[in-house]
Structure formats: C-alpha cells, structure tokens
Write a protein that binds this DNA or RNA. Structure first.
Lengths: 237, 237
DNA sequence: TTAATAATTTAGATTATTCTAAAAGTTTAA
DNA sequence: TTAAACTTTTAGAATAATCTAAATTATTAA
C-alpha cells in the first residue's frame, strides 16, 4: 500500500484517496454514488469497490449499508477536499508556471496530488496568489477546506438569444474536447454573445473575434458555466 | 505495486526505483554494495533486499551472483541517473522557487522524484536555467543522463593552512548537520580561508565575516567539496 | 407479482512488497 | 584451520489492492 503525504493524522494510500475524491465528485454533481459508478470512474471492477468501501467504512471515512448508496462522513469529506485542493492548485501551477496546456494538466496533477506535502501546497498557493479557480475554472477548496461557491454562475445553456456572458468554467473532462475548446478560444475569461439558439444548438460570437461565430450543441452548453454580462465583477480568479 | 511515471519502456515501482538509486549512490561513493548496506539505506530487512535484487536481475537492471557484490547493468544505470536527475532538479526547484530550506528539500524530492513526468522534468529544468548542481552542490545528471564531473573539485580536508577556496558541495545527508551548516553560512558558493589545520580539526574564516572564525572536525571536512581559489571560474552553477 | 435483468457482494486467487525465524554460506581471528 | 561472528538466503506468512466467477440481492417490465 503506497502511503501518501497528508497533514491529518491518518495515513491513506493513493488508492484510498482516489476513492474518496471520486465519491465526492459524483455526489457534488448529483450523480448516484454506486459501486458501479465508482468502479467505472476509478477504472477497477465492482468487486474491488465493495472491498475498498468496506475498508473506508472501518476507517470512518465513508458510510453505507450493503446495497445502499455510498456517502462520505465529515472526516471523509475533509480528505476529499484536501485532495481536490491539491489537484486544482497543481493544475493551476502546471498551467501558469510550467506552461502546460489545458488538456495536459489533469493527468500530471492526478499523480502529484497524493504526494505533495502541506508545505508544498502552501508554497504553490502562495506563489499563485491563492487562486480561487483552476485553469478549467473549477473552484479550488480554500486552505481551511471550504469549497467556494459562486451563486451568479449558471450554464451557458440557460442563456437566451442576445444574452452576453463571461465563461467561468469548462466542465468537460476529456482531453479531446479540451483541446477543441482551446482552439475555439472558449475558455474561462472569454466573453461571448448568444447570436441564436435553436432546438439542438446555439450560435455564439466571441468578444474580439466577432467575425467567426461558433456553433455549440446544447448538450455541451450545459457543461459550460458562465456569469451573465451584467454581473461581471472584473475578476474571475 | 505503485507504478511510476518514467520515460523509458519499462514501468518500475517506486520501490524498485529506490533500490536502483541506492545501488548507484553506494557504488558512486566507493562503498560496498551489499545486501545489508542496501537494507540499511532503504530501511528494509536484508531478506527483502535479496528478493528485490532477484526481481531487478530478472528485469536486467542489476547483476550479481548469490553472496556476491551487487551492481547495475547499463540499463539499470540509466534508470538510476534518471531518478537522480529528477531528485536533484526537484531539490533545486524547491529551494529556488518554493523557498524551501536546505534541510527540507530532500524529503519532498524523495517523494516527487518517482511521480513527475518527462514534461515536468523538462519544464522545471528550463525554468531553473538547466542547473548543473542542486542546492547541496551535488551534480545533476544532464538531460541525456550523463553525470557531470568537476576535476578541479577536492575535499576541504585536502587544503593547507593559508589556502583559500570556494565551497562547491556539502555531502552531509542528515537534516541536523545541514541546518547547522546553514547557520554557519558554510554553503555552496561560500569562499573560505584555512586559518589553521590541526590533528583533529581545521579553523576557517568565511569571506565577508572574517571576524568569527569557524572550527570544523577533519572527519567532516572530508564531506565538504571545494575548488581552490586560484581555479574559481566565476560560476558555480 | 414474478421473471428477467442489472447491480452488488462473496469466495477464492494473484501480484507486489514486506516481514520473521531459521538455515546456509562467508569471513575472521585465535 | 576451525569455531565464532556475521551476512545472506530460504521458507513461510502478512497486508494491500486488485481480479474472475459465482452467488446474492434489487429493480424493472411484462
């Protein structure tokens, strides 16, 4: 069991931390946290999940009754937020300081998140000016493990023809999509206007490059978060 | 088996990489590479070393006959140099960019060295200006895995009364000594003069703080590398 | 409501790394 | 040169994380 490098008293393995993180992320998205869902996210078989959940329950990090939904205890939640903070700070560091592309940050952060010390976390947080979001626009849990929320944020899907907004977050995960969005220039910070909205897609123009409008399937517009233009406060970070 | 993140074809575990690194370091210092020596360095029992050496032999990274000295093959040597390059680049990065103290860099680098990708290695090497030495003054293997050598370097011990020299390398490992040397200001780059040399110790003055001479046991003076003042070329890095 | 389908768990194995205790081999010093 | 001391290996076991295949439980749809 490879041990990791976390502050709190109990030493967890990389694998255990991954399970806790994925339970958190599934819950956060409102998706059911099942044995199968976890197995698919983590890339193991269901039987392995059953075993690991049993272990995490013994450690007081997870709760469930057999065949019932899985959820984190308060302690489990703290660990998940800690790992997520590592992950998102690392992504920010890789993008801003080491010149990684948006589609490259996730994989490397995935490895490093279990290994860095508190000292490393603090040092990069400081170096980056205590960012509130990572390069995807995902919120970074604070040093005291609170997940920041932005009540003004909504989906691109929610906009109507003529609306103007700033992109705050790209919730797509796969590298291909991220590369594509990069080339389109549809990234956190970008300001867009809805030129038209149809049954299956919407047409956008990007501030500063109005000459080439962009078409986005509605399904994807739900994976892009924005703040309406009237509410833009100046700073996205 | 926790897998690491290295360029070459074969995927080694953190543990395997540690064995290869320690074999390299023992050989390099001219110390005998025995089962017991490795066990002590790595912090496992001899029986575990026997097993692991068997595995590394099967992988073609190590050679020996039972009860005989252990040494690296060409392939094993490459892996060791790769890990050592990671380690020393990371130490440099932690010290220069994240404000770590000299005695803090080793532990963190020890964890990270097995996890960072080629891309990460290249990025920090670039950011640091392709340093030739880490904060201890230890040489950093080049990107093509050649260990730089400095033929002008010798031990502090070798100096005579009245000699002047620049410290290039502190070969002590324990955190306590490193802290102590930091407070004495005896660090790579420091220029010293030998005020006197006795049977058991030598007395030094440090350029810029001649008012307080420093006494060093001879045993320790063998762990400090210097270049004589006449040979100082200007750049230590 | 019950049969088919799907999800979950159990049982039994496998792989990697480590351990302890005992056996085997090597070195050393009288 | 041989007995004591030390090093190394072997044998057997433990732990962690995973797997497959079979059994169990839950859900769904007729």
């Amino acid at each position: 069991m490879k041990k990791t490098n976390r502050q709190s008293t109990l030493q967890l393995s990389t694998s255990q931390e991954d399970y806790l993180k994925e339970i958190f992320l599934l819950s956060e998205r409102g998706e059911p946290v099942t044995t199968l869902a976890l197995a698919q996210k983590i890339g193991v078989k269901s039987a392995s999940v059953t075993d690991m959940i049993k272990k995490l329950m013994e450690l007081g990090l997870v709760q469930r009754k057999p065949y019932q939904a899985i959820y984190l205890t308060e302690a489990g939640n703290r660990v998940a937020l800690e790992i997520l903070r590592h992950h998102r700070l690392l992504e920010t560091f890789l993008a801003e300081k080491l010149g990684y592309r948006l589609d490259e940050v996730h994989g490397e952060a995935e490895q490093l998140e279990h290994v860095i010390s508190e000292q490393f976390e603090k040092a990069i947080a400081r170096m980056l000016g205590h960012p509130r979001r990572d390069p995807h626009g995902d919120p970074i849990p604070t040093f005291n493990l609170v997940m920041p929320t932005d009540t003004t944020e909504r989906t691109l899907y929610s906009l109507k023809k003529g609306d103007r907004a700033q992109i705050t977050r790209i919730m797509l995960q796969d590298r291909q999509s991220l590369k594509h969005f990069k080339t389109l220039n549809l990234l956190p910070g970008t300001i867009i206007t809805v030129l038209d909205k149809f049954e299956d897609c919407m047409q956008l123009s990007i501030l500063g490059q109005e000459q080439k409008p962009i078409k986005i399937p509605l399904s994807i517009s739900e994976e892009i978060m924005i703040v309406p233009s009237s509410l833009i406060s100046g700073k996205t970070q």
